[in-house]
Design a protein around this nucleic acid. Structure first.
Lengths: 152, 152
DNA sequence: CTCTTCGTGTCAGTCTTCTGACACGGGTCA
DNA sequence: TGACCCGTGTCAGAAGACTGACACGAAGAG
């Protein structure tokens, strides 16, 4: 199974483990977000908007790791639900800065509690040192991958 | 932006970083797999099958983190392309053990080279110690998240 | 033996996300 | 000034994955 030597051994592959961790984290978030009627992308968009008000559609897309087309449809949904507002006219260029409505902010608060509990659960059993180590290592991976992408 | 204190700070959140890393890894894999006409799920299925021949549809689904319905349509595609074979009749129960065809194995070999190069690039700049540390930490996260899921 | 429970393969429909394409505004540079 | 390139918002179609539901076989409890 794992002794053929030619392949990427699933049992020891950090890439596979990364995918698994991400998958489990996503499932856990979906589970706690579902009672609130929100998806992970929903929440990510709102959280991003809370921390950086006035972000544009494209910027939100990059921050949540989806295409700007996908973010566009999500943003429409959030506008229709009254969680987000965008001006009808672009103040400058074509960029429409999005903002949370009070209602969106209230919705987000509940979601944040739920999501934070998941993150805390995920980190249980890890020391501060391990957490900061993981942080640095993940950043290194991201950096290496991005550089390679741009360079190729 | 990050001093409101109430939220999950995106700049320091391991969950967010995990999602980012996973997203970048996926993009990098898609990029090198595209010239071969394969998707990440395609590759994952083939790789899993190479390392554990005879896996069933449901087992493959669990191993690639998709639903068994999704894996079912993928498996059909792979069968039609001649990369995978499944017996017409289940040897026992309803479980249909899938196997790589020689053609599937050849296809996988090319993909493996491409994917391994991505993984190597990702790990560049990390010491052995850091890698095994990351491995252990990711496993801990997965374990904590899974336990919580089951317990809830 | 019978009943219940569980896991499995599969069909159907829906939803999300993606790729491709277009027009538009702003900045740079000749 | 005009040409060019880049980023943006948006429309349209396609691909992928998901949820819900069904029937069937195996394993265990009674």
């Amino acid at each position: 199974m794992s002794q053929d030597g030619a392949g990427v051994d699933l049992e020891t592959s950090l890439g596979y483990l990364l995918k698994e961790a991400s998958s489990v984290l996503r499932s856990a978030m979906e589970e706690v977000l579902r009672p609130l009627g929100m998806s992970v992308t929903h929440y990510s968009c709102l959280e991003l908007l809370a921390q950086r008000p006035g972000l544009s559609n494209s910027e939100l897309a990059r921050g949540t790791f989806v295409t700007r087309q996908s973010m566009n449809v999500l943003l429409r949904t959030l506008e229709r639900a009254g969680h987000v507002t965008r001006p009808a006219e672009a103040p400058v260029g074509k960029v429409l800065p999005a903002r949370l409505t009070p209602r969106g902010r209230r919705k987000l608060e509940k979601a944040t509690v739920a999501v934070r509990s998941v993150e805390i659960r995920m980190l249980a059993g890890l020391t501060e040192t391990e957490q900061s180590g993981a942080f640095r290592i993940l950043q290194s991976m991201i950096h290496s991958l991005r550089d390679g992408n741009a360079g190729a």
